[in-house]
Design a protein around this nucleic acid. Structure first.
Lengths: 163, 163
DNA sequence: CAACTATTGATACAATATAACATATCAAGC
DNA sequence: GCTTGATATGTTATATTGTATCAATAGTTG
């Protein structure tokens, strides 16, 4: 069972957006128009986007443009409520596409393909991740609420390289 | 048992440098003077350094200065032979301070303290890391030779915050 | 409405990283 | 030794990513 998907369709997008709205409200925060707009673009996009790419996409899809500066601020906000993730190894950003309320985020695992640069956030290794976190915490380090970026080769690229 | 240390003394540094020399030689590669110089500075420094900080330190300690461009290239080289690691979440670099031949690098774990920004590369969670990697690989993704950056709070900072 | 806070706009700039081409150094074969 | 090819470094320019700062606007609360 894997509730995290790569490409979300329109229905899923709207569902996530509604959940996002609810989440912000329950935290006493505002998912403003611009913030929602940024999140929507991230949700519509399969590959991770840099802040500037995101800005461009945003401005091509609207007549009230936004500045890169604001996008950075909005990304920070979205990250703080776990609606978006920053991929440090690529300096890019993705929407969290979990459909089940984003409850696993304290130890989510993100696979980063070195060849095609696609990102996949997987839930199916929760158990193993939990063990690793426990092992780490037994050293005295608090690794709570961490995201794990795992570089490697995805299925498709491996197949291509095998040819 | 933990063979990875944070601060290495002069004896350890020389030992690591010798191992590094041997390693490069065995790979048919050259650990040139500049490359060794960069590695030495990384080894002498506890905190991770940015490429530019590294350049400055290098140039303060020599009369044949180096350019940031070269430092980037050298870091790339050192990384390719696992003598240095890039900390993506900080855009900084550290020397690998493993004293036992750097054999664990296909799944090393690096702890990054969000408060003091200290880095610790730990070997003591090998088993748990191995399991996680296996779980990931069972999804079809090849995560071999990956480094895991784990953000969190280190022992010392946790103690401080408890006060 | 007034005062306050949160959000966004706008400009400037810092920090990080890479591209492109030139030059130097080293090792191997002649 | 000399040439040649490969590797390494120098040099300059520029791209990319991210932050600081202050002004303006929108939303909220009394």
């Amino acid at each position: 069972m894997n509730y995290v998907v790569i490409a979300v369709n329109k229905t899923q997008r709207n569902f996530i957006l509604k959940q996002a709205q609810a989440k912000c409200q329950s935290l006493g925060l505002r998912l403003t128009e611009k913030r929602q707009g940024v999140l929507e673009i991230l949700l519509q996009t399969v590959e991770p986007l840099s802040a500037y790419e995101l800005t461009d996409k945003y401005n091509k899809s609207t007549n009230s443009p936004i500045l890169a500066m604001s996008v950075y601020r909005i990304l920070e906000f979205l990250e703080s409520v776990n609606l978006a993730h920053r991929i440090h190894s690529a300096n890019k950003y993705i929407a969290c596409k979990s459909l089940d309320g984003a409850c696993h985020h304290h130890l989510s695992v993100i696979l980063v393909c070195k060849s095609c640069h696609q990102i996949e956030e997987i839930d199916s290794v929760q158990e193993a991740a939990k063990h690793l976190f426990k092992a780490v915490e037994s050293t005295g380090f608090s690794a709570a609420n961490a995201r794990l970026e795992l570089p490697g080769l995805c299925n498709l690229c491996k197949a291509k390289l095998d040819k």
